[in-house]
Design a protein around this nucleic acid. Structure first.
Lengths: 208, 208
DNA sequence: TAATGGATTAACCGTTTGGTTAACTTCTGA
DNA sequence: TCAGAAGTTAACCAAACGGTTAATCCATTA
């Protein structure tokens, strides 16, 4: 038998331990700031064992980046391409994205950083699978404009606005906290409110 | 005489050369990714001379961060605290911010990174000068709400939305380019449009 | 139970990196 | 004109770092 989960120790595999530790360290410090020794320490293993499982720092890093991008982008694209009614879609997209980012607040900055630092790698890794065409979303917006349900507006602009308002406050959290004098609790309350308010803000801005 | 600008060589001071080179390298690679040797090379000088002017990498880095934060934040706060009429203020803030970030597109990501990596240092460095109270802006929004000129809306939310839409598209540029299939020229056209459109988007969303 | 192969470790290695030293050059002012 | 200060350099150093080696541990199985 390949696994015999003891009743006392949950016994997480060493590989998972490493990946978890690597994710922590890379998200906190970035590629160049991360240290293989620290990853080993947090995983509770030897540094040599790290190279035994993942040949090099770069390989391990690319794996973590792939995981991070893979949990952020598909989530967004799938909802945008669903066949929900436009306003309902806006509400769902904003709500789900803010909820997810709330629980993974270091992820967006990490992903944005790495994609800016190494765009070619990113381009390849997403076009390798299916090219993320937002045809349905573009069409949906164009139709809503044509039917006069919303004001003339490019779907690209709409998308940028939604995503910006959903994600950026988490990246700029310390800045907003300082400038707006928000405590930790204040900030969380604010983000909780945005979960619904951002969508309504967008809808008011676009409806005819 | 302290300076005798030759007619042939403009003769930039070594210190400025270093700061310029350091800014380039730090913005591109971050603190841990930057190399003192590369900064020296780009400044066209010896590495020892770098330490002669700026004792350590950390000191040089803090200087660059200070300069970066100092060119981003005051610009925003001053306009927000000016006594322009609210809608006009929104138009001006968005326009000026997008224009500035267009010309310094690496700066926001750098600043956001560093502030997240080292929030205490940032908090100190801005509260040391005058504390950035946005009293005028908060009051202005509250009044506009009371007078029924705009819908009930917290000024914090309004500020976050404006700033997010102005800044984030530049940080997420490669992502948006990939997902929306935008060429370099397409992207620039889009940003040019946003220079005015974002403000109108905000105004439509908030007006009663 | 002995052999096999994967898992794990301590010790080590070569390179890179931030920083220093000591000497040399250039500038400045008395 | 010349002495001292400021500017600049090549060579060097110790620490940190990613990565390797060779030996040991340990579970499986024949």
């Amino acid at each position: 038998m390949p696994k015999q989960p003891s009743t006392v120790a949950p016994k997480v595999s060493t590989e998972e331990l490493i990946l978890e530790a690597a994710q922590q360290v890379f998200l906190e410090k970035g590629m160049s700031g991360a240290r293989m020794q620290e990853i080993a320490d947090r995983a509770g293993i030897n540094k040599a064992l790290l190279h035994y499982y993942f040949r090099s720092k770069e390989q391990l890093f690319k794996l973590i980046v792939g995981r991070a991008v893979g949990t952020l982008l598909p989530r967004m694209l799938a909802l945008l391409e669903s066949d929900l009614e436009l306003f309902e879609k806006i509400r769902r997209v904003v709500r789900e994205y803010i909820t997810f980012v709330s629980a993974n607040s270091f992820l967006p900055l990490f992903v944005v950083n790495e994609i800016n630092r190494n765009p070619e790698f990113f381009f390849k890794s997403i076009t390798r699978k299916e090219k993320p065409r937002l045809d349905a979303f573009h069409r949906q917006v164009a139709e809503a404009v044509a039917e006069g349900r919303i004001r003339p507006m490019a779907s690209t602009e709409l998308l940028m606005n939604m995503m910006s308002m959903a994600v950026f406050p988490f990246m700029g959290k310390p800045i907003f906290q300082a400038v707006l004098a928000l405590s930790e609790a204040d900030f969380q309350v604010e983000m909780e409110r945005r979960r619904t308010e951002v969508a309504e803000f967008v809808i008011r801005a676009i409806q005819a």
